[in-house]
Amino acid sequence: MTNHLLSIEELGADGIREVLQLSHTFVEVSARAIPRVPALRGKTLAWLFYEDSTRTRLSFETAAKRLSADTMNFSVGSSSVNKGESLRDTVETISAMGVDCIVVRHGSSGVPWRIREWTDASVINAGDGWHQHPTQALLDCFTIEQRLGPLDGRHVAIVGDIKHSRVARSNVEAFTALGADVTLVGPRTLLPPSLDGWPCKVSHDLDAVVPSADVVYLLRMQNERMNEALVPSMREYSMGYGMTMERVGALADHALVMHPGPMNRGVEIAPEVADLDRAVMVDQVRNGVAVRMAVLYLLLGSGVELPVEGV
């Protein structure tokens, strides 16, 4: 792994496997009575979240604490950014404090790539615009393989608002890198304008895809998409692309239902579907901590012996 984690493409198939393999260790650590190891003692991580995020930030925060890293939060809402400080000045200020890693989320695609040019710290992309959310993809891969074994040869349907989804972009790259077949399912208006070069199939017919799917990965459907005339109504969206109990009935017995959260029960997923055993959203969140521990360790813990046993 290099010094940064910005996209699944940059991480590559070998990098993904390295993270997933190490994540098992941290699942084990997380299950201990005192789930903490000193692997990153003395390292400082800064959270730079320009966009609200509760779950991703808490997950990173938990991962860092379990590795004994120090963390600081650059709270964008109440800081110099509100006073008009530029992104570059903010990054250089944080870097000057001697942080080892900046974990950034930003509403604009590409911001982590710019930040990387302005700091010596490691940069982790915790979500940039519509573009990438690599740790989400890694925890999704981990969760699927935990339940179903290797992704190689599996069929994953990613359903819904692909166009505006950084989760979808990262997951297409990650699932296919590990050998899965991916079908994007949604109305044309919610697909990216061009899928040239995307290693996946496209369908507008969820019912036709469900029977052969090993995983149905649902994306969050946002209300504002209706204002942009991308779908006529939430009702019509649910009719075409919502995961109903009826559609669950067409799934193979082993097939999983996934969602990156937060869910809109009753829109992209029927309330009762979200509570099924095959709906693994809680596993995703739980694994997210272990996977992020693995990422932090690989980026920042080089040279530090990982105390796997007896800590």
Binding site: R169, S194, W198
Partner: peptide, 11 residues
């Protein structure tokens, strides 16, 4: 708007 904007996640 095209292949690159779709990949880069830029409107």
């Amino acid at each position: 708007e095209g292949a690159w904007s779709s990949k880069l996640g830029i409107p």
